[in-house]
Design a protein around this nucleic acid. Structure first.
Lengths: 259, 259
DNA sequence: TCAACTGTACTGTGCCGTACAGTTCAGTTA
DNA sequence: TAACTGAACTGTACGGCACAGTACAGTTGA
């Protein structure tokens, strides 16, 4: 739009300095909430009047808080990305269970092959549940995917919330399990991706295509995926399990798990 | 919103009967092509003037062929879905290689574990290449995902082109391999999905998030994914490999999305 | 020859962003 | 507690712009 050489030294020459105060905070939150709902439901083409009306706020107030529609959009998206389903109770249709993140502690604390298998399957089910409940997140992803070319500044926050979002936690969990001799993982990065591939990616792909991976098929995929993952990475009980500097705790697991 | 009793009995009272003739066909094709390019690059918000200009055609001609912008959009999407990268040579940036579909014949004809492993890896690489080259398809998917709520008629064709697009071919290939005793697959539907999960879904998920699964990491995933798949499903060489020539156990023909 | 196409100018509409006059709220001082 | 004050908010109306769709007279091509 404007290619004027705006001096960065004067960030807001004539721009209102953004309202402050307790009431302003309430209004601002209402605006962001309404804008998110409408953006996710109608797309970026929704009008500012509609947003202001939905927020119960005058359109001028919207422009006093966020200088432009694009600024509002980026604020909404950035905020939505960092607030997966945070405590702000969305009374209507938001996710009910707090099962957003699977219990990774149970994973690392697994003290045997059977517990590990159960913990992995539970993690897969939790991921599936979280994905299924995260309608907003899904809409947000597709919305950003289409509009990111017009808002390059979103690229960073967008990429940060890609599939590598909570990789570190899972990576650490798998590494801990490998150090304890329960798993034998030659390529940790690949193993993490494979775990995701088997347990969560199918649902993501199906959902992105407007289809629903059925409940029953999802369960079969989780169970069989865990089976597959463990058949590949479960440490063999015989030889020295942990080569790294891990506390050499003899695991003594059973033989290869049955079907 | 609108509850007006529009008489459906007169579907096209004054609508032009759509131009015919050899010239009209050329123009029509040019319009569709330009519209697809612009829709995929700019989104549905692109102007009709821009589309007409890109097609080298008057705007009136566009409206003579397609009565409205929405009709043009649906025509473009429907056509684009059914023409993945068909022979119509897209000179500019379209996919170059004809590697769209991996060589499934080589898969079924594999005469041993090593050949099977190589064929699977090659299939994975071909899928990755096809996905990487299919920029249009990716943009089309996200575009439809965002606009499908405004064009419900697209839902059917959309869902049909989900991840289960070429499931049947792969399913048949795996079944043939199982019948020949090279694989031991208890749940065929799950096995097909797992093969996809390991070989192609990672790239799809990363691409949908604007990230790029690097070439090198992709190769590691293919190699390791094939390893994992075969470790799970390779028939044990010792005992009787093939239980029977009949499809041993494909009990769940549940609502598989796609044909 | 006649249908299809072109170029331009036009109407109408929807929407972003702003101006302005009046009103509500939150904190401060007496 | 009560009056005061200024920032924040409201409602409406408007400028300007972009765009969907049309009218019309002239031109091209099978």
């Amino acid at each position: 739009m404007d290619a004027q050489p705006v001096p960065d030294t004067t960030p807001a020459p004539a721009a209102r300095p953004a309202p402050t105060g307790p009431r302003a905070a309430r209004k601002r939150q209402a605006i962001v909430r309404a804008a998110r709902d409408l953006f996710l439901r109608e797309g970026f083409g929704v009008g500012m009047d509609a947003i202001a009306a939905e927020a119960g706020v005058s359109k001028v107030t919207v422009y006093n808080h966020f200088g432009s529609k694009e600024a509002l959009f980026t604020a909404v998206v950035a905020g939505g990305l960092d607030e997966p389903l945070s405590e702000s109770g969305r009374g209507d249709r938001g996710g009910e269970g707090r099962s957003d993140a699977p219990d990774l502690a149970r994973l690392v604390d697994a003290d045997g092959p059977d517990a590990l298998k159960a913990a992995l399957a539970d993690a897969g089910r939790a991921w599936g549940r979280a994905l299924r409940a995260d309608t907003e997140g899904r809409a947000l992803r597709t919305l950003v995917a289409t509009e990111v070319h017009r808002f390059p500044e979103l690229g960073r926050a967008w990429r940060a919330h890609g599939p590598a979002g909570h990789h570190p936690a899972v990576t650490n969990a798998l590494r801990a399990l490998a150090d304890r001799g329960l798993l034998d993982i030659p390529d940790l990065e690949v193993a993490v991706l494979q775990l995701y591939s088997l347990l969560v990616f199918p649902q993501m792909v199906f959902e992105q295509h407007g289809t629903e991976l059925g409940e029953e098929l999802g369960e079969r995929l989780v169970v069989d995926g865990v089976e597959m993952f463990l058949r590949r990475y479960a440490a063999t009980p015989g030889p020295a399990p942990a080569p790294s500097s891990a506390p050499g705790r003899a695991p003594a697991p059973s033989s290869t798990p049955g079907s």
